[in-house]
Design a protein around this nucleic acid. Structure first.
Length: 424
RNA sequence: GUGGACGUAGCUCAGCUGGCAGAGCGCAGGAUUGUGGAUCCUGUGGUCGUGGGUUCGAACCCCAUCGUCCACCCCA
């Protein structure tokens, strides 16, 4: 136990030096979702536990052992949300949003009590999209194209798209029975983990990484062979659309999402650069969920992306960010220090895009210039006795050797405006 | 929840067989009393994660505990 109080295990501070990358992802997503006409929705991070049990599934790991649940003062069981879809569906039903198609997105922290490791945290941030009331492959294609556009916007190139269809509820159920029968017949070949999955979520046996399981898995009946004509057609149309859009993808018949509510189309964007937690974005259809939660039957698709993972990818790629500060105002002498805040306000009035840091705390020219340099500012603005007497402001470029100038206020505005324009 | 590695200065780390707690970077000041960065000088830095045990003596060995990382599992 440390002497100091520390952040809770698996929950991390995001420090100022990392924030620029977060903004890049968040702003990029916001801009792109807007360009497809998606509207933001914000829901509470706390819900009644029942909501997650009924949507994610009683016997999933998330609900069984990963939820932060507690009893509140009224005796109700509440849980910090482990994912965003359930809340969105709840809100859509509650506010009668389902009378027409809805394209929604959200962002925020999610909570799962797992053992932390790279790319996996107990509090983590997701941005997600949920679309209600559209049943066709066209909307599946739209949201995948939207994610692909986001990667392009962010400059991420190493992601691969994997795709599968789980069938509709009945097809999935039928296949599940076939698969269980097959696996039961080979019990002695299954490892302990797969035996457990056989009980809880048989489809996930197909997902096993165990080397000795691969042969059993390869010989298992294929989900694709159990799809009905309608489902197959839906999936083929989606693939066709992706082909025409030039988005490369891989069919992965073993791609099975862990949450119970998925059906038909499922997809994942995966990277090899983050170790074991390589899924950066995942989603699919959940046509039965709205009805299951008491709304009228409504088809739905969505996905969620993991912000921590994307930010780490960007940080590995070493993307440079624009300067946090354009200019640093230095003031030496009593009179100049009194004048500086007023000058700074006038500058901000004149140049709304200007990021200007004003030196506080006094000190010599030398120490103030040191601060100016460390702030990362492009220019130092200098106000001393000499400048006051002459009615000018000094501008000294800190990142090039073009030399210090003395400028009147209007000249300064003009020059600064040009200089910050070049960096934005 | 399971397994493994690791916790020493703000950061990255060294510290031999148990014998004075170290380096680089950073930070502060100076060389330069109106000018940052490069260089040089000086200074600041520590409950060796925490608690217990063994020992004349523990950063080092033992036990426990907390944390971090990696993998399993799970998943974004």
């Amino acid at each position: 136990m440390s002497r100091y109080i520390q952040a809770i295990r698996g929950m991390h501070d995001i420090l100022p030096e990392a924030i620029a990358l977060w903004h890049r992802v968040e702003d990029g997503a916001r801009r792109i979702f807007a360009s497809y006409g998606y509207a933001e929705i914000r829901t509470p991070i706390l819900e009644v536990s029942e909501l997650f049990k009924r949507s994610i599934g009683e016997v999933t790991d998330i609900v069984e052992k990963e939820m932060y649940s507690f009893t509140d003062r009224n005796g109700d069981s509440l849980s910090l949300r482990p994912e965003g879809t359930a809340s969105c569906v709840r809100a859509a039903i509650e506010h009668g949003l389902l009378t027409q198609p809805q394209r929604l997105w959200y962002r925020g922290p999610m909570f799962r009590h797992e053992r932390p490791q790279r790319g996996r945290y107990r509090q983590f941030n997701q941005i997600g999209v949920e679309v209600f009331g559209l049943a066709g492959p066209d909307i599946d294609l739209e949201i995948i194209l939207m994610t692909a556009r986001l990667w392009r916007e962010l400059g991420l190139s190493g992601l691969r798209l994997e795709l599968n269809s789980l069938g509709d509820t009945a097809e999935r159920q039928a296949y599940r029975e076939r698969l269980v029968a097959y696996l039961e017949g080979r019990r002695e070949q299954l490892d302990a983990e797969s035996l457990r999955r056989l009980q809880t979520n048989p489809l996930r046996v197909l997902d096993s990484k165990h080397p000795e399981m691969q042969e059993v898995i390869a010989a298992a009946p294929s989900l694709m062979d159990h799809l009905g004509a309608a489902t197959r057609n839906h999936f083929e149309q989606l693939c066709h659309g992706l082909d025409r859009s030039g988005i490369p993808y891989q069919l992965n018949p073993r791609l099975v999402r862990g949450l119970d509510y998925y059906n038909r189309t499922v997809f994942e964007w995966i990277t090899d650069d983050l170790g074991a937690q390589g899924t950066v974005c995942a989603g699919g259809r959940y046509d039965g969920l709205v009805e299951q939660l008491g709304g009228r039957a409504t088809p739905a698709v969505g996905f969620a992306l993991g912000l921590e993972r994307l930010v780490e990818l960007l940080s590995l790629a070493g993307h440079a960010s624009e300067p946090a500060v354009h200019a640093y105002l230095i003031a030496v002498g009593e009179q100049a220090q009194a004048e500086a805040p007023l000058l700074a306000e006038r500058l901000r009035d004149a140049l709304p895009g200007l990021r200007l840091l004003t030196h506080c705390g006094g000190g010599s020219f030398k120490s103030q210039f040191k601060r100016a340099d460390k702030s990362g500012a492009i220019d130092a603005l200098v106000l001393g006795e000499t400048e006051l007497e002459r009615g000018v402001i000094g501008l000294k470029p800190l990142r090039d050797e073009s030399g210090q100038r003395e400028l009147g206020f209007d000249e300064l505005i003009e020059l600064l405006g040009r200089r910050i324009g070049a960096t934005n």
